[in-house]
């Protein structure tokens, strides 16, 4: 019974983390048809910047409190906006309209460049920013102690997910966005500024990616290569759910979270690839993912 409760809670926490680190990826794809490999770099940059900021602040004020969370948030927004603009204006703008796989390669190129840029800025050593993780003490669930920060990820991510959903379906810009997703050319002909929607969407996705990294900073040791590992994991989550679907990303995160936690509990040696097994099975049965729409073609 306790094991079951532990699996459920662990899965939820892990799924929340997966959702926050991959939602930006699916959002950008859904609107722009861009599968952004550089999402991994945004995650890593967010984590580095947040860890660096927290480290700097704690160095001067050892009992810093909730202000650490503000630092993390600011780090994510700064990274997301700066790097997002750089990628969208500097690179993507020149490849819009080309084959979607060419666009993937372009973002892969950006990813490669940013890998080295991060090494040049932050060096090879690891950054640790555990302090925010202990702001909320520990909470006991079914007799098992959990770190409050981890548990808080669940409602936070639920809030972000619902927020995105509401922004798309319940606001005027969101409805215009749906028009853009549905048919760029017609939207453009109706006077919607598609280029601006692209920029804004990409910035939102980039900020979410960096936020995922910033929120992860207290959970991990921030070292070179975290973006490399993250991006394939995020791919798995969004592909399982169906590229471009927010609900899909949530389901994908839950499935992967459950699968990985079960593996950790019962067969730890499977942990590394259970994610990709789920991804393979889903893609084999439903090539567009669980919530993806099959492309129909008029002939």
């Amino acid at each position: 019974m306790m094991a079951l409760a532990a699996i459920v809670v662990d899965s939820l926490v892990y799924a929340s983390w997966l959702f926050i680190v991959s939602i930006g990826l699916t959002l950008i794809f859904g609107v722009m048809n861009v599968l952004n490999v550089a999402h991994g770099s945004l995650y890593a940059l967010g984590a580095y910047t947040a860890a660096w900021g927290v480290g700097m602040y704690v160095g001067g004020a050892p009992d810093a409190g909730y202000v650490l969370l503000a630092i993390m948030l600011v780090a994510a927004i700064v990274v997301g906006v700066l790097v997002g603009i750089l990628i969208e204006r500097g690179v993507l703008r020149w490849v819009y309209g080309r084959d979607e796989i060419v666009i993937v390669l372009a973002t892969y190129a950006v990813f490669l460049v940013l890998e080295d840029v991060m090494k040049l800025i932050f060096g090879p050593e690891s950054y640790i920013a555990f302090q925010p993780r202990f702001l909320f003490g520990t909470v006991s669930v079914a007799g098992i102690p959990y770190v409050g920060y981890d548990l808080l990820l669940v409602p936070l991510v639920a809030l972000i997910g619902v927020g995105i959903w509401a922004a798309i379906h319940r606001t005027r810009p969101g409805k215009l966005l749906i028009a853009v997703i549905h048919d760029r050319e017609i939207a453009s002909a109706l006077g919607i500024n598609v280029a601006r929607f692209f920029t804004v969407t990409f910035l939102c996705g980039a900020i979410l990616g960096a936020l995922g990294g910033a929120l992860s900073a207290p959970l991990i040791s921030v070292v070179p290569g975290i973006g490399v590992e993250l991006i394939v994991l995020a791919f798995a989550v969004v592909v399982i759910g169906g590229l471009g679907s927010v609900e899909g990303a949530a389901i994908g995160a839950l499935l992967v979270g459950l699968g990985r936690t079960a593996a950790v509990f019962f067969r730890p040696e499977l942990e590394l690839f259970v994610v990709f097994v789920v991804m393979t099975v889903v893609l084999a049965v439903r090539p567009e993912g669980l919530f993806g729409k099959p492309q129909t073609r008029r002939i």
């Binding site: 796989i101 590229l243 590394l272 690839f273 990709f276 991804m279 393979t280």
Partner: peptide
């Protein structure tokens, strides 16, 4: 053989990552 574009790329990525996981463990 029924997959194209991004899905072909991603499915193969998943296969290779499964093998990586097996070999590494």
């Amino acid at each position: 053989r029924g997959h194209r574009g991004i899905f072909f790329a991603m499915l193969n990525l998943a296969f290779s990552m499964i093998l990586f996981g097996i070999l590494a463990k």
